[in-house]
Design a protein around this nucleic acid. Structure first.
Length: 856
RNA sequence: GUCUAGAUGGUGAAAUAGGUAAACACGCAGGACUUAAAAUCCUGUAAUUCAAUUCAAUGAAUUUUGCGGGUUCGAUUCCCGCUCUAGACACCA
């Protein structure tokens, strides 16, 4: 019989639709909630990098199911956000259409990986049934403050009571009342900076800004101050830091997050410049390493007002050059203490475009060659700073900016009554995002403030036209910003437990069983974003008594990135320049374009005729001296913007799902980055053929002896161990070894064949199902229990005999005689022992492992 | 620049708690089967040296886990210094 994977996979895909995998252990009390970070449904579909995570979680969940756990392994779509909007602007199709199409494609691709998800529990963040609760959470944050004494969030009502004791609250007008409360709310309004492009008349993401210019069009981008919603995550920092002890995360992952929170002890003093107080922070009392201005925003304004160098400063801020040498002396001012001149250095070296560090020194000749040595300036002798120092803590983490000046996100359920933010009553949520269905409507950048119908009728609780805005009728403008993408992902892990529950964001009965996520899988790049915000959100839920555990994700494993070759070309004014001539031009004036691999002929030469067929590249190509055009070749993360995506579809068509699953896991450790190569997939196919032939064709009369039992038992032990440590790629090697062992010994026991298939089934569901049926299995193989390791089956202990740390022999001894004396007896007459007997110095005996004989 | 992770054959990589380095694959070389190709199967495969035998095969010793040190009977693993590579670094998901 021939192994026809196409037929088998098609057949079992159909059959598996009828099995509810997640009900197999319906009545089990053990649970396992495994979760992949949900994908962004991009139009390009799922690529190889994504598929690794899904296959990984699928294998683990199938294994756990085999240990009789009840499984939750859901999937959803994070469908609000910038890419869909960008794509909408680019193509003229409304985002909702794009998303729906993408989700369809994504689902199909996922189903083609042989992965079991809880398809009945799917969630979609841009559906109003979901974002109703995202908005609800925001309103809760708006309605709560952080109580320092109890270290918990409490209702703002309680705060009012406290304030009333101190101030005559009722005598204040609404605006000052609001101002006071705004200082305490967990969601509050504050001015902060954004990237603003005057020519495009829009806000840009950091990613869209390159060298201080907009990615599209190359216009100048400036920093602009805007009133925006913030979340007061900083109040929760201590709790976030303390609770790491409850997390089973890799150490380095915890460290990344800890560093990001960046709690530091620091000293500060204040100086006055023209009646304005400035706090200056120092690392130690005596030496100035660097000085950080606490209020960069304020400082820039100050500079702009006081010194008429606006142009110079703006220009400088926009030069995104991370060299430390790149600093400029902007102002000199007199130090109020001893009339020493202090130079203020301003550098954009710190991350982002924000100015955060300002360096101070008192001598006139300070070099900035090396931050570690030259920069330490002792001010002690010149000025007595000590007198002014105070100790405090600073954090790297700031409050989260929660407003996005974009269309495609959850509307913030707030309206402005005489300039004061008012929440929309919970009852009337969701505040629905108006869906624009017309084509070409979005060709230009679109925001909610361009809508004609975006005001709130306070009495009728309805959205109404802006022209009706009227204080007497209670009609006020709505907030036009939307929420960022992390608003939805903060809490989605809870929604999976009861995605269709209408009364509340979670069904508390079901939560009691599932609790938090047992194993969370995702990219390392989310550690300082989503994963941190999600923890913050969970802690807030705990204060609201929605959840009971301290942390949302018990265990976390990050998935390695798949790298692939990229090719890029550089444009100068109206022409492209061959990569070997690039040194002749100033890098700041060059624009980088990624190009598709199909335009490349051998290694990194460009096929100019072919590329010119594409209108985007219809410019001059300036060749090098050899009359060739070279591209820059690099190995980078697989991503749609870099045009180096490979999708699993074609590979699966050629090799089959089982083969693809094996191969993708066999590539290496799950959390390590891998360069994409297809050449080793042959080996996996051979392995599948081998399994097929072993199970169906090997026939012999040999009996299944006890020694084989104990060897198989050892394999089972190792396989379980690897699952436990999440090193599942190693198991494939074990399977292969085990198989060659079974074939060589010509074992024909149905019992062993069955055990072997069950062990393999999480990895390769289809071939094992087929074989399972062929050797007499009645139900699906996934109803079977995974074989368990039995420690009493091993009767022999393996010893390695060494002389001066060099291996000489391997000896098996019975467990009954597991001691040094017996071992000595065993080697007594061996040649290697007799030769060295005279020079013997001592024995080093390590139980169950080694006997090392030291000679002189 | 800061932080983090990593470096093992021609390639992807294994090596439980410091104890057989290179498992398992790919590739390559040789062979079997076949008109031929593909597929399949078998054998070999870190390097150097020596011995023996030469039809083929074999045995022994030494050196090897980026570089240089340290701890230890013993280091891929622990510690210190260096070199290189990759990733993260706030409106990217």
């Amino acid at each position: 019989m021939i192994y026809n994977f196409k037929k088998i996979e098609k057949k079992w895909k159909k059959k598996h639709k009828k099995i509810n995998f997640f009900k197999i252990n319906k009545n089990s009390k053990k649970k396992f909630y495994i979760l992949n970070m949900f994908p962004y449904p991009s139009g390009y579909g799922l690529h190889i990098g994504h598929s690794i995570g899904y296959i990984f979680s699928d294998i683990i969940s199938k294994y756990k199911s085999g240990l009789k756990y009840k499984i939750l392994n859901p999937i959803g779509f994070d469908s609000f956000g910038l890419p869909a909007e960008q794509y909408a602007i680019y193509t003229g199709n409304p985002p909702i259409k794009i998303i729906k199409k993408s989700i369809k494609r994504y689902k199909n691709q996922l189903k083609n990986l042989g992965v079991f998800f809880n398809w009945d529990k799917i969630i979609n963040t841009c559906s109003s049934k979901y974002y109703k609760w995202t908005q609800w959470i925001f309103l809760k944050l708006f309605d709560y403050y952080f109580d320092k004494k109890t270290n918990k969030a409490k209702k703002i009502k309680k705060l009012k009571k406290i304030i009333k004791k101190k101030i005559k609250w009722n005598e204040l007008n609404n605006k000052t009342k609001n101002k006071i409360l705004n200082k305490y709310r967990l969601a509050y309004l504050k001015k902060s900076y954004i990237n603003w492009c005057p020519k495009l008349n829009s806000v840009l993401a950091n990613e869209e800004v390159i060298n201080g210019k907009s990615e599209r069009g190359g216009y100048i981008v400036i920093k602009k101050k805007m009133l925006q919603w913030h979340l007061r995550i900083t109040k929760y920092i201590n709790r976030l830091l303390i609770d790491y002890k409850y997390l089973n995360w890799p150490k380095y992952i915890k460290n990344i997050q800890k560093k990001w929170i960046g709690k530091k002890k620091i000293f500060f003093f204040t100086i006055k410049i023209r009646n304005k107080k400035l706090k200056i922070y120092l690392k130690t009392k005596n030496k100035i390493y660097f000085i950080i201005f606490n209020f960069p925003s304020y400082y820039i304004d100050f500079l702009l007002k006081e010194y008429k160098k606006k142009k110079q400063i703006i220009k400088f801020i926009n030069e995104k050059n991370y060299s430390f040498k790149n600093y400029k002396i902007l102002i000199n001012f007199k130090n109020s203490i001893k009339n020493n001149k202090i130079k203020l250095y301003i550098s954009n070296y710190y991350k982002n475009n924000y100015i955060k560090n300002i360096y101070v020194d008192t001598s006139n000749n300070v070099l900035f060659k090396n931050i570690k040595n030259d920069f330490i300036i002792n001010l002690k002798n010149k000025i007595e700073f000590n007198f002014f120092f105070k100790k405090t803590y600073i954090y790297n983490l700031n409050d989260l900016v929660f407003s996005r000046q974009r269309y495609w996100g959850e509307p913030i359920p707030i309206y402005y009554k005489n300039g004061i933010p008012k929440p929309i009553t919970n009852k009337y949520l969701p505040l629905k995002l108006p869906l624009i269905k017309k084509k070409l409507f979005l060709k230009k950048k679109f925001k909610l403030d361009q809508l004609k119908k975006w005001s709130w009728n306070e009495n009728k609780h309805k959205i109404t036209y802006n022209k009706f805005i009227n204080k007497k009728k209670g009609i006020y403008p709505l907030e036009t910003n939307t929420m960022p993408s992390f608003a939805a992902s903060n809490w989605y892990y809870l929604r999976y437990i009861s995605p269709k529950y209408k009364k509340f964001l979670i069904d508390k009965k079901k939560y009691k069983f599932w609790k938090n996520v047992d194993l969370y899988i995702g990219g390392i790049e989310h550690i300082n974003g989503h994963l941190l915000y999600s923890r913050f959100c969970h802690k807030f839920f705990k204060d609201l008594k929605i959840v009971k555990n301290k942390e949302p994700y018990k265990q976390f494993i990050n998935q390695g990135i798949i790298l692939n070759k990229t090719y890029s070309i550089y444009k100068y004014k109206n022409g492209f320049i061959s990569y070997d001539n690039i040194n002749k031009y100033n890098i700041c004036n060059l624009q980088k374009f990624y190009i598709d691999k199909k335009y490349i002929i051998n290694n990194n030469k460009l096929n100019i005729n072919k590329i010119k067929e594409n209108k985007i590249y219809n410019y001059n190509f300036i060749l090098n001296s050899k009359k060739e055009f070279l591209c820059k070749k690099k190995i980078e993360k697989m991503s749609k913007s870099k045009l180096n995506i490979i999708t699993p579809d074609k590979i699966i068509k050629k090799w089959g799902i089982d083969c693809y699953r094996l191969y993708i896991i066999f590539l290496g450790p799950f959390n390590v980055n891998k360069i994409w190569k297809i050449d080793k997939i042959k080996g996996m196919k051979r392995f599948l053929y081998k399994i097929w032939n072993f199970v169906l064709n090997i026939k012999s009369s040999k009996k299944y002896s006890n020694i084989y039992k104990s060897i198989l038992n050892n394999y089972i032990y190792k396989i379980h161990f690897n699952y436990k440590e999440l090193l599942i790629h190693k198991n494939i090697s074990l399977f292969m070894k085990l198989l060659t062992f079974l074939i060589k010994k010509k074992i024909n026991s149905i019992k062993i064949k069955k055990k072997f298939l069950i062990l393999l089934s999480p990895y390769i569901p289809y071939i094992t199902e087929e074989l399972w049926k062929k050797i007499g299995g009645k139900k699906s193989i996934f109803y079977e229990k995974q074989p368990i390791f039995r420690s009493n089956k091993n009767k022999y202990v393996k010893y390695i005999i060494m002389i001066n740390n060099k291996k000489k022999d391997i000896i098996f001894i019975n467990k009954k005689n597991n001691n040094l004396d017996y071992l000595k007896l065993k080697i007594k007459n061996k040649e290697y022992f007799l030769n060295n007997k005279k020079n013997l110095k001592k024995y080093i005996f390590i139980k169950n492992k080694i006997l090392n004989i030291i000679i002189i």
